[in-house]
Design a binder for these strands. Structure first.
Lengths: 171, 171
DNA sequence: TTACGGGTCATACTTTCGGGTGATTTTGGC
DNA sequence: GCCAAAATCACCCGAAAGTATGACCCGTAA
């Protein structure tokens, strides 16, 4: 069928259509404003939009609202096979007790920032995209991911997400 | 004392100073090239400040307070039956339908083989591991993953897994 | 018979991930 | 003010993932 063709050249087709629409829009605007001289209004509008965007960007960039972590304990009747595997990882902080503190098991020593990164991972974002969202560099995210993998005792992001969801660390 | 104050409001101060310098620069330029009609510049500046403030206000108002909820799984001494590890975790994503949604699969045109690969992906396996499990070559898995990404309209395996689980294609 | 979808495999290439290491800055508690 | 933890950023390097393209085989439906 033509589905394969469409699938293969989907983006090319989309790009073509988008370009056509954009050209049409430009033509329309040209016609629209050739009559009236709305230069000042357009200028003001552009300025307003630009600086509103700047303000939003600034606020998001500079304000780091405290991430309040709400901890809800939930009793689970079925001890998953992975839970014992978690224990040795947490045993770094509490090696004495054979059954470490529940909070340490659950949190695994994950910081708030690491959970944010984990959340991004779970949404299927790349490290670069997570970096952009959190306004930090790619290297920082890589450091965070490394520590997350360490603490969760996994080696790949897919495993981390799977485990984090299973442990209800993230939704 | 003053250091603490400076530290706390560092960015605000920086922003203020920067703004002041910018205004000064504008004034200087204005004086440099004596043009009587300063109305536009003043108007622009006022507009810029106003809408920057608006943007900041908007961002602060609209950005929801980030509250990360951590649910702690607490083991209960009561021994549980031999439940597969996946089952309890899947209960939160698919409480109603334990079986995959056939309609979604048919709708997306995913083949049986592709579902198998997708399943492997969801378990956090690497392409090589999936290849070994299905007794095919690594390149074959890569081809499958590419087609899966096409059909699911995603670009990364993490996104594919996220979407597949959301659509109940896999458990 | 031919066209097509599905499965398989390959090469060559670019991009992203992840490990390892070291460093500085920021933050929060004492 | 001091200190430890957290957060940030950098560089290198190998591995894995993903893109693009072409090819072959095999059923099946037109």
């Amino acid at each position: 069928m033509a589905t394969r063709f469409f699938r293969r050249y989907k983006y090319a087709l989309l790009y073509g259509v988008a370009l056509a629409m954009l050209l049409f829009l430009l033509k329309w605007l040209e016609w629209r404003f050739i009559i009236f001289d709305h230069a000042l209004e357009v200028y003001s509008g552009a300025l307003a939009i630009l600086f509103t965007g700047l303000g939003i960007w600034l606020a998001l960039r500079l304000s780091r609202p405290k991430v309040s972590t709400v901890i809800i304990e939930k009793e689970v009747p079925a001890p998953a096979p992975e839970v014992p595997a978690v224990a040795p990882a947490a045993s770094d902080t509490a090696p004495a007790t054979p059954i470490p503190d529940e909070k340490q098991i659950a949190l695994l020593g994950l910081s708030a920032r690491e959970i944010e990164v984990l959340q991004g991972m779970a949404e299927g974002l790349s490290n670069q995209e997570i970096a952009d969202r959190l306004f930090v560099s790619l290297n920082t995210i890589k450091t965070h991911t490394s520590r997350i993998f360490e603490k969760l005792d996994v080696r790949r992001r897919t495993q981390a997400v799977e485990k984090a969801k299973r442990l209800r660390i993230i939704v």
